[in-house]
Amino acid sequence: MFTGIVEQIGEVKESQTLDKSSTGGNGASLTIAGAASILGDCHLGDSIAINGTCLTVTAFDKDSFKVGVSDETLRKTNLGFLKAGDKVNLERAISGDVRFGGHMVQGHVDTIAEIVERHPDGNSIAFQFKLRDREFINYIVHKGFICVDGTSLTVTGVDYENATFTIMMIAYTQSKVVLPTRKLGDWVNIEVDLTGKLIARQVELQLGSQAENKESMLYKLVSRIVDDKLARKI
């Protein structure tokens, strides 16, 4: 689990496609340098989020670490676009005594989004993103949480018809994360707020259960409406 508060900006040292014959897939590996500040307590098998994607450390030294990236992760995230020299957001998995400054982030990226607009607003920057997989717009709400490339941000606007949303990034945050270096047309990782997905699932289960139960309030209400409509036609 993560907070969406970026600890360090690292740099891609190497992005390498793995040998399909040895891995059984078309995965990749990433080596990230400039990460000394988060490696002091690192162990093999630890989780570190790269641009909001939870990955497992397979090797490390004082300044850099290596992770494997699966086919599924490449399909869901922007990690496959990374090349040597690119900057990335880094965050270690939370410990028991961490202050929860952002919001609950799983590190399980839902989809990617394209930067379709950016403009200054005072000393802040306003960004607009368009989701690749538009169904996830249903979990994004005005003033709710969103995780963009591993950064916990507040949604300032949502267009459900066009599957776009906007955020505002203050000057302090601009110096701590990679988003301000992104340009129009770039893709970013998106993780919607887990709470919205849990609520939606519970509502679906409850509605499904009540729709099948002839004694439920929902079943009786729908039956009464249908009977009334049929009576009016007769």
Score class of each variant (00 low, 15 high):
residue 195 T to M: 14
residue 155 V to F: 06
residue 149 D to M: 04
residue 134 R to T: 13
residue 151 T to P: 03
residue 145 F to R: 01
residue 147 C to I: 15
residue 141 V to K: 07
residue 170 I to M: 14
residue 162 N to L: 10
residue 178 V to F: 11
residue 194 L to K: 07
residue 176 K to D: 14
residue 156 T to K: 00
residue 143 K to T: 12
residue 158 V to I: 10
residue 176 K to T: 15
residue 131 L to E: 05
residue 193 D to A: 02
residue 133 D to G: 01
residue 196 G to Q: 13
residue 192 V to Q: 04
residue 176 K to P: 00
residue 154 T to I: 14
residue 155 V to T: 15
residue 183 K to Y: 05
residue 140 I to Y: 03
residue 166 T to L: 01
residue 157 G to E: 04
residue 148 V to N: 13
residue 169 M to Q: 15
residue 179 L to I: 14
residue 151 T to E: 08
residue 132 R to W: 06
residue 179 L to W: 10
residue 175 S to Y: 06
residue 181 T to I: 00
residue 161 E to Q: 11
residue 157 G to D: 07
residue 169 M to E: 15
residue 175 S to T: 11
residue 173 T to N: 02
residue 145 F to T: 12
residue 179 L to S: 10
residue 140 I to H: 02
residue 155 V to K: 02
residue 197 K to E: 14
residue 145 F to I: 12
residue 141 V to C: 08
residue 196 G to A: 15
residue 156 T to D: 00
residue 182 R to E: 09
residue 165 F to S: 09
residue 140 I to D: 11
residue 148 V to E: 08
residue 174 Q to H: 03
residue 159 D to L: 10
residue 138 N to H: 12
residue 187 W to C: 06
residue 173 T to P: 01
residue 149 D to Y: 05
residue 199 I to E: 05
residue 139 Y to D: 07
residue 131 L to H: 04
residue 166 T to G: 00
residue 192 V to H: 02
residue 152 S to M: 14
residue 147 C to D: 13
residue 192 V to P: 04
residue 146 I to V: 05
residue 162 N to V: 13
residue 136 F to Y: 14
residue 146 I to W: 04
residue 151 T to A: 09
residue 181 T to V: 01
residue 140 I to S: 07
residue 173 T to I: 00
residue 201 R to M: 04
residue 184 L to Y: 02
residue 187 W to T: 13
